[in-house]
């Protein structure tokens, strides 16, 4: 996993609420057995016509946002399925940070496993970032994970919360499995105790 420290990039405004994982990456692209290559199909059915032509109105098709690295989104972003293909597609497109008032639980977890930072902020602050993002490609926002701040193109800064363990993993690009396997003796002894207490499991 790539480290996440600071990021200065174009923010794309996507104010629609309840953007679900079927919108982010429709099911026909889940048939891959790899993690890479999904960026071209990110938001596929919002982004392309049935014939495969780009829909010019869609935000990521607009010249200003084609290189976006941040999405400022409406409430409850990432609801729906557990498909990790959603953060894989975002990452493959180049998105490293999503800001919303709320995220669906599984999507939120999946982001951290892939070096994407989901930031939760109150509505009024998301509104400010959304307006800033609407200014286009010159409006670059800056995310500083160490300092836990996100700053608009005109220098307005907001602090955000992030789980300390997840922050540590993102900052250092750490692999969860490796960390857990350091606790293998605790897992061994749990299994011994649990199989005595609940032998039917």
């Amino acid at each position: 996993m790539d480290k996440f420290t600071t990021l200065t990039g174009i923010a794309a405004p996507m104010p629609l609420v309840n953007i679900d994982t079927d919108m982010i990456i429709p099911k026909q692209f889940l048939k891959t057995i790899q993690r890479s290559g999904l960026g071209k199909n990110l938001f596929d059915e919002m982004r392309y016509t049935l014939e495969g032509q780009e829909i010019p109105d869609f935000v990521l098709n607009q010249p200003a946002y084609r290189q976006a690295q941040i999405i400022i989104a409406g409430d409850n972003f990432g609801c729906g399925s557990s498909r990790e293909h959603a953060p894989w597609a975002l990452l493959d497109f180049g998105i490293r940070c999503v800001v919303s008032t709320s995220f669906a639980d599984i999507f939120f977890n999946n982001c951290f496993k892939n070096g994407i930072l989901p930031i939760i902020l109150p509505q009024d602050q998301v509104d400010v970032l959304m307006e800033d993002a609407k200014k286009g490609a010159n409006a670059r926002q800056t995310v500083d994970l160490e300092a836990q701040t996100i700053t608009t193109s005109d220098g307005q800064s907001f602090g955000f919360d992030v789980d300390p363990f997840r922050k540590h993993c993102l900052l250092n690009g750490l692999d969860d499995i490796g960390l857990t396997l350091e606790k293998v003796s605790a897992i061994d002894s749990f299994e011994m105790t649990a199989s005595a207490a609940r032998p039917w499991v």
Binding site: P87, I106, I177, I187
Partner: peptide
């Protein structure tokens, strides 16, 4: 439900 990274985590560690 869990994502694929967590599937791998559970396969490897059962946690």
């Amino acid at each position: 439900g869990i994502g694929t990274s967590e599937v791998e985590h559970v396969l490897a560690t059962q946690t």
